[in-house]
């Protein structure tokens, strides 16, 4: 019943256009199909979590959407536009921001400078031959730094940040980019319980403003941030539905959760 209601929301023919529509996505590395005919539809404003065992193809799916890896088959439509074969910078300009699994910030730059790089109002080199940012951009940077709780560290070189702070900085940078779709690859990896809770708060504050696709293992965190989960297994979509539906899905329990108890941990 619940699943059917969700399914009807996900049908592409619904009056609202899907923000991201992945169809039959495929990629193989030397013969091994890592992503194998994946379908994924995200509606605007949705927070979706992608789970699956190691090697299920979650990060590779993010690589394919963000242009890091070129698919060998299938299409990716973003806001109705085919972005399947665009280079990464054009996909970013189209409105997709990504936080990497291994925190990737510019270590030699200060926190504010990192944010300035991310705040890409004009990507052309000649437009950037200007000294400083406009006032509204500076205000935006301080707003976001406040949001992710790094205001007091704005002048600190990024290499001096703790692991959790680095993760938040990268989330902040992705927000500064102001993308319609945010891809977060394991945003809580290596975080303490408190840090994870704070990250969930940050993500919940973004709900509605951005569409978010998260790869995550931590089920407590998943429960905190989202309603609909997509489970991947061996490059395919195994199941999709609410947390309750997924938790009681025998197939999911079988291939991913094994004992069946892990999800309740």
């Amino acid at each position: 019943m619940v699943q059917r209601a969700i399914a009807s929301r996900l049908v592409p023919s619904s009056p609202q256009q899907a923000l991201l529509d992945v169809r039959g996505l495929e990629v193989s590395f030397s013969g091994l199909k890592v992503v194998d005919g994946l379908d994924l539809t995200l509606m605007p404003g949705e927070v979706r979590v992608l789970i699956g065992a190691n090697g299920a193809g979650k990060t590779t799916t993010m690589d394919l959407i963000s242009g890091k890896t070129k698919p060998t088959g299938g299409t990716i439509l973003f806001k109705g536009r085919n972005i399947t074969h665009l280079p990464p910078h054009e996909i970013a300009r189209a409105g997709i921001g990504r936080k990497f699994q291994i925190p990737s910030v510019f270590k030699d730059l200060t926190v504010t400078e990192n944010m300035q790089v991310a705040l890409c109002c004009s990507p052309s080199v000649f437009a950037n031959l200007r000294q400083c940012l406009q006032r509204k951009d500076q205000e935006r940077i301080s707003t976001i730094l406040h949001q992710v709780g790094l205001s007091h560290l704005s002048r600190e070189p990024a290499c001096n940040l703790s692991h959790g702070q680095t993760q938040w900085l990268e989330i902040g940078m992705v927000l500064a980019q102001s993308p319609d779709l945010v891809l977060l690859d394991e945003p809580t990896a290596g975080m303490t319980v408190q840090e994870t809770r704070k990250t969930a708060e940050i993500i919940n504050a973004l709900r509605g403003k951005h569409t978010i696709l998260v790869v995550e293992h931590d089920m407590t965190f998943v429960r905190d941030i989202c309603h609909i989960i997509t489970v991947m297994h061996q490059g395919r979509k195994l199941a999709e539905g609410t947390i309750e539906a997924i938790e009681s899905n025998p197939e999911v329990l079988e291939v991913y959760l094994g004992s069946g108890g892990v999800i309740h941990a």
Partner: peptide, 26 residues
């Protein structure tokens, strides 16, 4: 300038800069 900042960012992590929408080659 911001272009100078981007040069530093490119030196620090060339791949990452692309995902903010910059064409690094340019």
């Amino acid at each position: 300038t911001r272009a100078g900042l981007l040069f530093r960012a490119v030196q620090a992590d060339e791949q990452r800069v692309q995902y903010f929408g910059y064409d690094v080659a340019v």
